[in-house]
């Protein structure tokens, strides 16, 4: 065989093989089987019901093996105190794991600050967790594809593949990601995927004594969460980043973002 012929037939073979193999990419059998058009997990937080007890944070840490005393958490509760002079004071000591039991506000290096009742115009609590965005920035920036979105809309991290570069932590506009202190890979809320995919509830929603947190299927018109998102005036956090979050809030204030 001449060199020219060899190169020619190689080119023909490679071209032919790539065309037929690209069909597999267009119709990925795994994707077809896994897609679930009838299910899209969403979360509803009713801030009016939250009292800042921190049960959700505790439950989450215990359920998901996040070291109890480590200063990271998959979910947390923020306290907002709007003062009569227009000042807004916020804190979330240890992610509110132990609940808000005093009027002392934790300000890190700036020390603590005691709020007096007569100075406060209004105060409330806002629970936060991963927004499981429709267009997640963390999935976009992961260099190895270790963080991914499931067909039913939950964003997960593959602990066996994560290289621990921290790009997803930097890319998340909500600050929900951190390095797991034991596993040393990126970690975040999974909507308790191991529970909800078996028909269970998330640990935080189950632990909440006041029903401030609910998880549901946004594609099911009879689901309470989907109904609330449709019929009530709900808000989302940091819409300006274009990530299309799926955690909806009732009673969101302009100070919360």
């Amino acid at each position: 065989m001449k060199r020219r012929d060899f190169l020619k037939s190689t080119a023909v073979f490679v071209a032919g093989a790539s065309v037929s193999l690209s069909a597999l990419e267009l119709v990925d059998p795994k994707e077809v089987l896994a897609s679930r058009p009838e299910l899209r997990w969403g979360f509803l937080v009713d801030t009016h019901k939250c009292v800042g007890c921190g049960m959700c944070v505790k439950a989450c840490k215990l359920e998901n093996d996040i070291p109890y005393d480590a200063n990271v958490t998959r979910t947390w509760v923020e306290r907002y105190a709007m003062m009569k002079n227009g000042e807004v004071i916020k804190d979330s000591p240890k992610g509110a794991r132990d609940g808000f039991t005093s009027k002392l506000v934790d300000q890190g290096e700036a020390g603590t600050r005691l709020l007096r009742d007569k100075d406060i115009a209004q105060a409330f609590f806002v629970p936060k967790l991963c927004n499981h965005c429709t267009l997640p920035a963390c999935v976009q920036v992961c260099p190895v594809g270790a963080t991914y979105k499931t067909a039913d809309g939950v964003v997960l991290v593959d602990r066996k593949w994560c290289i621990g570069c921290g790009y997803c932590i930097m890319g998340c506009p909500y600050g929900v990601r951190f390095f797991h202190p034991v596993v040393h890979t990126a970690d975040k809320c999974t909507f308790c995927y191991h529970r909800i995919s078996k028909g269970g509830n998330t640990a935080c929603a189950q632990a909440c004594p006041f029903g401030a947190r609910t998880i549901g299927n946004l594609r099911d018109p009879n689901d309470p969460v989907a109904k609330a998102v449709l019929n009530e005036r709900v808000g989302i956090l940091r819409a300006e980043y274009g990530t299309k979050p799926n955690v909806y809030y009732i009673g969101l204030n302009k100070e919360v973002h």
Binding site: T73, W76, E109, G175
Partner: peptide
């Protein structure tokens, strides 16, 4: 950390 910083935020 100083003032209000989210619980998971560090200089990563």
């Amino acid at each position: 950390k100083e003032l209000f910083v989210l619980p998971n935020e560090y200089v990563y």
